[in-house]
Design a protein around this nucleic acid. Structure first.
Lengths: 223, 223
DNA sequence: GGTACCTTACTCCTCAGACAAGTTGATAAG
DNA sequence: CTTATCAACTTGTCTGAGGAGTAAGGTACC
């Protein structure tokens, strides 16, 4: 990740040093940092450079500066970037988390889906059946259908979680389909149709079970 | 959310304006922004103010400035802060998402828990029973037990998701306990003990069901 | 015509100094 | 003890100057 030659501006270096000191526990949460002039002297840079470093960390949510009062620590580290976590995790781990979210979403969707949402699900199901079988378009219509189910759950937190998973899962699925094309499109389509039918029937338990079963086959395809 | 009196520094205002223009599509991804002097003249502020605004957006990952070349757009919006999403969502919505994660985690924990993890669960269960009944300590030992279950699932993505929920759920539970103290501590403890027992017995289905049932009572307590 | 080099104009980067604006704690008056 | 005032310190902003890097255009050479 690190470049061989890296000519980082002084302000970025100063921000890195400050963040390191905060991570190391030199400053506790809510504590006031030394003044700009003090920090500038410590690091041997100008005050405006320190100011830019503080601004950068303020943008990351680690620091907060208040005129007249000082600069305060508001977080002990940068909020973990969601994409980073998912990239580090194995695809089967991600799919397990996806099972948790989608199975519950399918159950909630069965209880709450509106007629309009059901129509949208049926339309997406039809689009999925007739779509371009090439990896990218196929994965996209598939994800669109899965997303509609989560949206029909009426739980915006689940939708946000699902959306966070999409990029990671999408690339993994595209890569897999390029290596090993799906054996049976018919069985795949039947599994999706069964989930939609369970949601149409307002059968929460069956919707969850079918969704879980379908994603488990996906998980084992990667294992 | 907006303060009645808002005395934002010029640099923060400038950052907000620039972000607004990027959101509005005035600049496409990868495009170079006007120079510092130009922007300073446009907004009627000094160069250093513009520089600090750019630094702030660079910290958020929206901009990237390269010496000699210019400032470039690297994202069209700030990555959605997880805390913000959860604060906006109702507590019942958050608990529904928590059910999804913890029920699945309990099932996985039943299949995978190590002897050491089981011992830790039993210890946390005992600590929960004998802990200070005041709201804050009680919620903390409760959350600690729940977290251990998720950790025992062996899925780091689920752990990250759970940790993301903790702050929001913790404050909500503390507030509720201050208003309406738990009716029966015994039933509450029995519910937790049952989940741990199911995990000890390696009964995935029962662990998930008990976990779901317990959190559902919590959900309805808020409704 | 094509290539390598160089010049030049532009960009961001950093510093120093000055003053404005806000906060905080000590101090003095009531 | 309470309240008002003030002084020291903090961050906020602007300006001017020079350093360093980039990219584009021109030029000499092959």
């Amino acid at each position: 990740m690190a470049a061989i030659v890296h000519r980082a501006p002084l302000a970025a270096q100063a921000a890195e040093i400050l963040l390191g000191r905060i991570r190391a526990g030199e400053f506790v949460l809510g504590q006031r940092l030394p003044g700009e002039t003090t920090l500038a002297a410590q690091l041997g840079v100008g005050r405006s450079t320190i100011r830019e470093a503080v601004r950068e960390l303020a943008g990351k949510g680690v620091l907060d500066s208040r005129q007249g009062a000082g600069v305060f620590v508001t977080a002990l580290d940068v909020a973990d970037d969601w994409d980073t976590v998912l990239r580090r995790a194995s695809i089967t781990t991600v799919i397990e988390a996806r099972i948790a979210i989608e199975a519950e979403a399918a159950a909630l969707a069965a209880e709450r889906r509106s007629p309009a949402q059901l129509r949208a699900l049926r339309a997406a199901l039809a689009a999925r059946a007739t779509a371009d079988p090439a990896p990218e378009p196929h994965v996209d219509v598939d994800m669109a259908l899965h997303r509609l189910i989560v949206v029909a759950s009426g739980n915006e937190v689940l939708v946000e979680l699902f959306d966070g998973f999409v990029p990671r899962v999408r690339t993994a699925m595209v890569d897999m389909l390029k290596i090993r094309p799906t054996a049976s499109h018919e069985a795949d389509h039947a599994a999706h149709a069964a989930v939609v039918d369970a949601i149409a029937d307002r059968d929460a338990r069956r919707a969850a079970e079918l969704s879980r079963a379908h994603l488990n086959t996906l998980k084992f395809a990667f294992a």
